[in-house]
Each structure stands twice: as C-alpha cells, then as structure tokens.
C-alpha cells in the first residue's frame, strides 16, 4: 500500500538542478485511483480531471468515473451484500472499529490532505478526529440498534410475532460535497453498520481523502465490495445512481432541488428508497444517530403459531 505522504503541493515541488538531478530526494507522487470490489482500478473511461485548491494549486489527476465504473461497483456491492449482511452484528462492529484504528494510525496523512484542500490545520485535525470518533460511534451501534428498533408484537391470536430491522441491500450514495472526509464517513458508516453495501461518489472538488480512505478500508478487514468509492462529477453520475435497477436505496446530501427531483423520479423505476440529508451539519452531534442507520433498513415481521392445547392460550 502506498504510504507516501504528499507534504507539499505538486506545484511547489522543488525544481530540478540544471544538470537534471533533483536537489534532494525526488518525492513519490500518489496516483489517486477509484476503489471497486476491494481493488484499485483506474476508471475504464480513461478520463480524469485536475481539481485545484483555492490557491490554484493542482491537487492531483483524479479519475472521472463513468457509468460503467458505477455498474461494476454495483455488481461488486451486490456480490458482497449477502455475506456482509449475514455476518454477526458483533463482527461488523469489530470491523468498523478496525477502520477507526487504521484511520487513527494515518491521521497525519489525512490532515495533510485536508490542509492541501484548503482546511486550516485546526479544522483539518478536528475533521479527522471527528471522523475517527464517528466510526467508533457506529461501531458500537452495530449490535445495538436492532434491540432498540425491534419489537415483539402482542398479537391477539396464538402466535409468536416479532419485527426486526434488516438491511435494504445495495445503497448508492453521493457523499456531502463540501467536506472531503467527515461527510463521507458520516454517510458510509450508518449504511454499512446496518449490513448494507454501498457505492459512494466522493466530493468532486475535494476528492483526495476519499481515495486515501479507500486505502484505509483496504487494510481494515472490510471485505471487498462492501464499500466502493468512485470519484467524478455529480452531474455525470447522479442519474445512474438513481435509475440502476439493482440498487435498493439512494442517499443524497446536497440542497440541489432539481437534482433531488430527478433522483426521486428515476428512483421510482424500481421504488428505491430515497434518503435526503440536506439540512445536516456533520460537524455537530446531529450528524450522528441510530436513526441514520434505520434510514436504510427494512422491517421484517415473522409469525409462528404457538401450540394451543385445551384452550390454554400461550403467547408473548
């Protein structure tokens, strides 16, 4: 895994000496690729874009993902869902905790990337620490939210009847566009904590942390395909995220009324659940809650008769 840390913006790399040799050691630049099925391919489109920070410094060449990338990511997510959804909730909790551990170990890299993407050092540190804590928060929920939102229902007939949350399946997510890391983590964590798998589109203007976060995922026991991360343009991909027939739910976080309407219309093709988070400040306590987990859960109710002998009714 590439552990290289870009400490300086590319534009400021020190010029080579006149004889062509670098003054000091030449830095290794990182290639920012996408993350599908546990692997790091380049986009099949071969297209890229070069986002800049506010000082017009180029951040990197970043993949401009295509519809085909998205479709492949959905296949990976669907293949991974059965295993992920049926793992013990305790195991999912451990894996989310492991993601937080890995992120903790690579704090410096994320802080550097955030600074490069216009954050002050203080803001960057705050965002990374909050992101780690948010993962810990959801790691803890993995085997608890079911107990809060399940019911044993006192039906009038002789039946044992209970209702439990289950993952809705594959979720497409367009991560909050204004943050590089915290928004991304805040929308992924509740979705996978509940046993879903997902395909996420990172922030277009601040994509660096998403790709580096994929490296964290890759080294933290998250099975390939559970989280797939694409970079690219919202306007290129949103309609495919919304109309894919093998996606069960769509999480969208922008306040863009036209795109929201388009998403809801296209989602009707297979009755996707559309979740809109456009009023949430991810930096506050309101940016985390078990209700976010429930937004991509279904409720299943199971019935079984209870033996009823001699008129003595048993029940719960």
């Amino acid at each position: 895994m590439a552990e290289a840390t870009i400490k300086k913006p590319i534009a400021k790399i020190e010029k080579a000496q006149s004889n062509g040799a670098p003054k000091k050691r030449l830095e290794i630049l990182k290639t920012y690729k996408i993350y599908i099925g546990g692997k790091f391919p380049r986009t099949e489109s071969g297209r890229y874009y070069s986002p800049e920070n506010s000082s017009q410094e180029k951040l990197a060449n970043v993949c401009l993902s295509s519809r085909k990338d998205f479709r492949e990511a959905v296949v990976a997510a669907r293949n991974a869902q059965g295993d992920w959804g049926s793992r013990a909730a305790f195991n999912r909790g451990q894996i989310l905790y492991r993601i937080a551990e890995m992120l903790e170990g690579r704090k410096a890299q994320f802080i550097d990337e955030l600074i490069k993407q216009d954050a002050t050092r203080e803001e960057a540190e705050n965002e990374v620490l909050l992101s780690i804590d948010r993962l810990i928060y959801y790691a803890g929920w993995c085997d608890k939210f079911q107990q809060l939102y399940s019911t044993v229902n006192p039906v009038a007939s002789s039946h044992f009847n209970f209702s439990v949350p289950e993952p809705t399946g594959v979720v497409s997510i367009i991560a909050p566009q204004s943050t590089s890391l915290l928004g991304l983590v805040s929308v992924i964590a509740p979705v996978i904590a509940g046993g879903n798998t997902c395909v996420v589109l990172a922030s277009f203007t601040r994509p660096l942390c998403a790709v580096t976060f994929a490296e964290v995922l890759n080294s933290s026991d998250v099975p390939g395909g559970v989280i797939n991360i694409l970079t690219g343009k919202v306007s290129d991909l949103a309609s495919y995220f919304a109309d894919h027939m093998d996606v069960n739910a769509f999480v969208f976080c922008e306040k863009d009324a036209d795109t929201q309407k388009m998403i809801q219309e296209k989602a009707s093709l297979n009755l996707k659940r559309v979740v809109l988070y456009n009023k949430i400040n991810w930096l506050t306590e309101n940016g985390q809650s078990p209700y976010f987990i429930m937004d991509t859960q279904e409720i299943k109710t199971t019935w079984h008769p209870i033996e009823n002998i001699g008129g003595a009714k048993a029940g719960y």
Binding site: T151, N153, P154, V155, A156, S157, H159, N161, S163, T168, N248, N270, L271, R273, E298, I299, K300, T301, T302, W303, H304, P305
Partner: peptide, 26 residues
C-alpha cells in the same frame, strides 16, 4: 419479504407491522 409466515399464512394483527421490501413498496 416484509412479512414471513412460518407454519401459518395470511395472519394479520393491529400490533404487527405490515409492508414490503423492493417493489412491494415502503
């Protein structure tokens, strides 16, 4: 599926949530 009956079928009760997965609604 949103409702699964084991060794019974078509049981309903006001206390028992009813509704679908996938294209059976939400």
């Amino acid at each position: 599926a949103g409702v699964v009956w084991a060794n019974t079928f078509n049981q309903f009760d006001p206390t028992s949530p009813f509704g679908g997965y996938k294209e059976s609604g939400y």
